[in-house]
Design a protein around this nucleic acid. Structure first.
Lengths: 160, 160
DNA sequence: AGCTCGCAAGAATAAATATACAATTATGAA
DNA sequence: TTCATAATTGTATATTTATTCTTGCGAGCT
């Protein structure tokens, strides 16, 4: 279903940029994005995405993606399958934000190649990158927000 | 409290060896070991241990330890404190903060090893690191403060 | 067209989990 | 010691989350 897939994407986006502590809270955020659904459906979505209710740094509960990039839906058969050779190729594992910095973790040795590609695109949302062995740091432009950064990166990392 | 600490140990042991899908189930296992407590207390224990209810391979729920190695306790003082399981000559020299960034200086060539260890712990307070030769940069989670970062790092760098 | 199959979803509810409150017990300071 | 403070816990309950049951919908088929 088209609706479901874009909703799952929206959930991923929200969870990777905001601190969500309950399904009801997430439901509200989804409503803002125009998704109308019940808690029951959301519970099933979260189960499918293998989202986990974890404990954040201040002891607050927080829903977190455990494998943001692993699965994607295909066509009309609800069949799930592991994805994207592109992504396999770029070694992407996770992205996190703090302030105007994003930190991407990759598989060992993939960081510099990924950073190279990101630099190449000269996204206006990203003013610079620096790479170690399995970590890329991005400095985000002042005018850009996290959603914009994720959308930009999606060019290179499709299922970010 | 002595009882509590050994109970937390027992919880870790059970979770790392068995598939536990609910607190009640875990409660039963603990009872077999001689621990008598209520679900309320268990809920608090799990929160403290940062155990999360995750989704296992067959789609079944499962409680899993997120940081199995993080805390160890000692003696009769109930005080919990991080203990370094790996005694490293880590080359640490200094740490300074600016905004959401911390900069650690090390002896020459020690930076990447130190960063590796920090990454390994996956402290929620630190969303990523990047290392040069004698410098490690840490990006601090937005929700975390500097004290929390220092306390976390003490696990690895006792004399920080 | 009708029929079936399978997925998606809501309503209602069951089940599971978190927490407010109160009582108890430990810890530390004087 | 005694007092004050903090930690731990259980009870009861609120809150949150999973699931059962049902309906609707669309694809593929005859």
């Amino acid at each position: 279903m088209k609706v479901k897939n874009s909703r799952l994407d929206a959930i991923r986006l929200i969870l990777s940029t905001q601190e969500i502590g309950s399904q009801e809270e997430l439901l509200n955020e989804l409503a803002k994005e125009g998704f109308k659904l019940t808690q029951a459906t959301l519970s099933r979505d979260l189960h499918q995405l293998r989202v986990v209710k974890s404990v954040g740094v201040q002891g607050r509960y927080r829903y977190v993606l455990t494998r943001p990039h692993q699965y994607r839906h295909e066509g009309t058969e609800g069949e799930m399958r592991p994805v994207s050779p592109v992504q396999e190729a770029n070694g992407f594992l996770s992205i996190k934000f703090s302030g105007n910095i994003a930190v991407i973790h990759t598989k060992p040795s993939y960081a510099s190649t990924l950073a190279y590609h990101i630099d190449n695109y000269e996204f206006p949302e990203i003013i610079g990158t620096i790479a170690g062995d399995d970590t890329v740091m991005l400095i985000i432009a002042e005018e850009a927000n996290r959603g914009a950064v994720l959308r930009a990166l999606r060019t290179i990392i499709p299922n970010i």
